[in-house]
Computed example of a mutant assay.
Amino acid sequence: MRQGSSASRLLLVGCAAPAAAFFAAFWLLPVALLLALPASKGWGTYFAVLTNSRYLQSLLQTLGLSLTVTLVTLLLGALVGITLARQRFRGRQLLLSLLTLPLSFPGVIIGFFMILLGGRQGVVADLTHALGWGRFTFAYGLTGLFLAYLYFSLPRAIATYTAAASAMDLQLEEAARSLGASRWRVARDVWIPELAATTLACGAIVFATAMGAFGTAFTLASKFEVLPITIYNEFTNYANFALAASLSITLGLITWLVLWVSRRIAGPTAF
């Protein structure tokens, strides 16, 4: 028995060793270097995002944009998702497939779509020019980023709410209606509590995705700087690796904290 137990332990160690080595080399070591790098320029580098007005503005703009995108995504995603879950009509599956199609596109492609729509040579600019109003553009600032982030995030919310609403207990809604509850009362007393965990989990993921989005921002953020672009500029254009690491830590801590809090409230089964 002891020999068998020893052989099992050796086999377990042998199987776990490659995974442990991979984890140490490609996650633990880079994260340790990232955390230690700002100290080479002084401990104040860790707080540069709070002491430098440019970095603080970039952080606040990123937070504001991400929060706005998250709220609008949840609202539209819930409305569309619940409708698709409750209504049965011809072409429903095709419509759901089309609505979730942007899930297959990377952020750069989403940015390219926005340029085709609202860029200098886009459809809107050509239309306003033909009407004699000049070439109107919106792709390269806050409006373009917001629409692109929304376009990128909305399919995830629609798919999540559709699945969650389909799994809801219809008897609760039927009981509320039988007691004379109005549509708004049913939404308040049945839908919102039933979908609360889904809303919290989906909102956390949308927020984290918007905070760290780079491809879309890199394509469109020429007039509105967000933190991922600030980080990219620091280590690519200025070779300021310590400051880039500090900003990366700030971004990572914020997104991790939001995901951790939402997971604690909603429960692990919501993710």
Rank of each mutant, 00 (worst) to 15 (best):
M1A: 12
L10W: 15
C15W: 11
A17M: 14
P18M: 05
A19T: 14
A20F: 12
L35T: 01
L37K: 08
P38H: 03
S40P: 02
G42C: 06
F47K: 00
R54C: 00
R54L: 11
S58M: 15
L60V: 15
G64P: 10
G64H: 09
G77M: 08
A78N: 07
V80Y: 01
G81A: 04
T83R: 05
Q87A: 10
L96K: 05
L101M: 12
I110A: 11
L116C: 12
L116G: 14
G118H: 02
V124G: 01
A130M: 06
L131S: 04
L131M: 11
F138T: 03
F138A: 06
T143F: 09
G144N: 06
Y149S: 10
S153H: 05
L154D: 00
R156H: 15
R156E: 10
A157E: 01
A163V: 12
M168S: 00
D169G: 04
A176M: 14
S178R: 08
S182D: 06
T198H: 08
I205F: 14
A208M: 07
A210D: 02
A210K: 02
T219M: 09
T219N: 00
A221P: 05
S222F: 03
K223N: 11
P228K: 06
I229N: 01
T230V: 11
N233A: 14
E234G: 01
F235W: 15
F241A: 10
F241I: 13
V258G: 02
R263A: 11
I265M: 09
A266K: 01
A270F: 09
